[in-house]
Amino acid sequence: MAYPPDQGLYTGVLRLVLVLVGVSLVGFTIGPSMLRRLTGNSTAQVSCPSCVCDCSSEDFLSIPLGILNSSFPDCGKSDPDMNEEMGKDFVALLSEELSLQKAVANDSMQHTKALISDARKAFSHYQKEAEKCSTVVETCEEGREKAERELAEELKLSALWEKRAHELGWKVNRRIYS
């Protein structure tokens, strides 16, 4: 079967677009490696500009201390807070870190204890509600059992009276009303 003329045009345009997309993908994946081979530079050597230390800004506090000491040896010498921090020995820093961790652990423990207390209160409340429900269910069950016993007794009495009535000549006279 031949396609209608309009559909053949769309099919041709679609094929052209797919071919262009395929060629573009191949060019983008193979192109950079081919370009490096042609130019002969496998890695580009870029020199890093020298770093400038601006001790007046307070951004140097966000830099780790090891990098700060090795990269900027004169940075922070005039700042008394920085001198105090840098003057602390390793044991003092560790003890400060341990005291901070202890404070965080204590806060976490208090939060956990509060959550446990709330959970116990909720458990107690729901346990009381469950006991109420159980009591009501037991009461209802006892009432149902009592009603069943009374019904069975009433049925026996009715059967006895019906039997006596039949013995005395009573006949069932049921009329169907229409």
Rank of each mutant, 00 (worst) to 15 (best):
P73R: 05
C53K: 05
D81G: 07
R15I: 15
L18V: 10
A105L: 14
E131P: 01
S158Q: 08
R36M: 13
T112V: 02
P49Q: 12
G12N: 04
L100M: 11
E142D: 14
W170T: 01
P64D: 12
P80M: 02
P80N: 05
P32Q: 06
A2G: 07
I67V: 12
N106Q: 09
I67E: 07
C133P: 02
Y126Q: 08
K128R: 11
S99M: 07
S99P: 00
E96H: 04
L14H: 06
V17A: 12
M1H: 08
E138A: 13
L14V: 04
S57Q: 15
E138M: 09
V52W: 03
K77H: 15
A147R: 10
K171E: 11
K121P: 02
V172A: 08
F90T: 13
C48D: 10
A103C: 01
G12Y: 01
K146V: 01
N41F: 15
V13W: 11
C51R: 14
M1S: 14
N83W: 00
S95V: 10
A147F: 09
R120M: 02
A2V: 06
V52P: 01
T11S: 06
M109V: 04
Q127V: 05
F72M: 04
L160E: 14
M34W: 13
F28P: 03
V17S: 03
R120D: 06
S99T: 02
G143H: 11
L160Y: 09
E97K: 11
A147S: 14
R149N: 08
L25Q: 03
E153Y: 02
G66R: 04
G87C: 04
L68S: 05
P64T: 03
L38G: 02
S108W: 00
R175V: 13
E96M: 11
G12A: 14
E85L: 15
D81H: 11
L14E: 11
D54W: 07
P49I: 04
K121Y: 06
N173C: 00
V136T: 09
R164G: 00
D107F: 04
K171Y: 01
G8L: 14
R37I: 07
V26F: 14
V13C: 09
S71C: 15
